[in-house]
């Protein structure tokens, strides 16, 4: 089995899956009808992308696990999503901060993956990129509206960005899996995504009259571990809800 590719695909598949689940928790609970629709539509895009990544992961693994088995029958230590996306929803500023920091990274990553030496990866990335370009434009819009809104929305948005910031650094970490993928030009080194990411985030926050936190603040090792299966307690609760039906009724299908 191609260990590095399998692990890398799990990271992509799990990260989109878990964020999709977090956003789908907002179905019927958005602060406004338009936001409710937007969040759940983004969740749907991410879920579709996750299915492609996990299906490919299953093929690469070669143990005939399909997308459903990977999504529903692994426990938390086997999940490889970044910690940022398992963060609880909190208030709407928190949700937007998490989404914005993630969307910008997701966009620049997919852009690089479009020229992956693995054409299966490039195909999924190319398809996802168009959806994610739209996600970034939307979350950038909303962050400007909330940051440059009332004194209250400004303060809460700033607090939310500062709070989510700690978890951004993990997205840019180069470990042995990323290095193995980069060596064969199947993926970029994630550290190389930082300058473009930081520039877009910084300029958007500036437009939103918000302060960009220090780059160093994103680099604390305590807020890493998702890609090697060390998660926060939040993931267990997500999986309990997401996997309940399949665990209680093994093999249940539509």
């Amino acid at each position: 089995m191609d260990h590095a590719l399998f692990q890398y695909l799990l990271r992509l598949g799990d990260t989109t899956l878990i964020l999709s689940h977090r956003l789908s928790e907002l179905t019927g609970h958005g602060p406004a009808l338009e936001e409710d629709l937007a969040m759940t539509n983004v969740a749907l895009d991410l879920l579709g992308q996750s299915r492609r990544w996990l299906t490919l992961a299953g093929e690469v693994e070669g143990r005939s696990r399909d997308e459903d088995q990977l999504a529903y029958l692994r426990d938390a230590p086997e999940f490889r999503n970044y910690l940022l996306v398992e963060r609880p929803n909190g208030h709407y500023g928190d949700i937007i901060a998490r989404q914005f920091l993630f969307d910008v990274w997701h966009y620049f990553l997919l852009k690089e993956l479009c020229s992956s030496s693995d054409e299966r990866v490039a195909a999924i990335a190319g398809k996802s990129l168009k959806e994610v370009g739209y996600h970034v434009r939307r979350s950038s819009d909303i962050i400007v509206r909330l940051g440059d809104g009332t004194a209250e929305s400004h303060a809460r948005m700033q607090e939310a960005v500062d709070d989510a910031w700690r978890f951004a650094g993990e997205l840019f970490a180069d470990d042995e899996i990323v290095a193995a993928m980069a060596d064969r030009r199947a993926a970029p080194r994630h550290s190389q995504l930082w300058p473009a990411w930081f520039e877009h985030v910084r300029s958007t926050l500036q437009e939103a009259t918000l302060r960009a936190p220090d780059a160093d603040g994103a680099n604390h090792p305590a807020y890493r571990g998702g890609t090697s299966g060390r998660h926060t307690e939040a993931l267990g609760y997500i999986l309990a809800e997401m996997q309940h039906l399949q665990r209680a009724y093994p093999g249940a299908a539509w």
């Binding site: 629709l37 937007a38 539509n41 983004v42 749907l44 895009d45 739209y134 939307r138």
Partner: peptide, 11 residues
């Protein structure tokens, strides 16, 4: 709204 009743539409 950036999204309408389906992913492919805006309002």
């Amino acid at each position: 709204s950036h999204f309408g009743s389906t992913s492919c539409k805006a309002l």
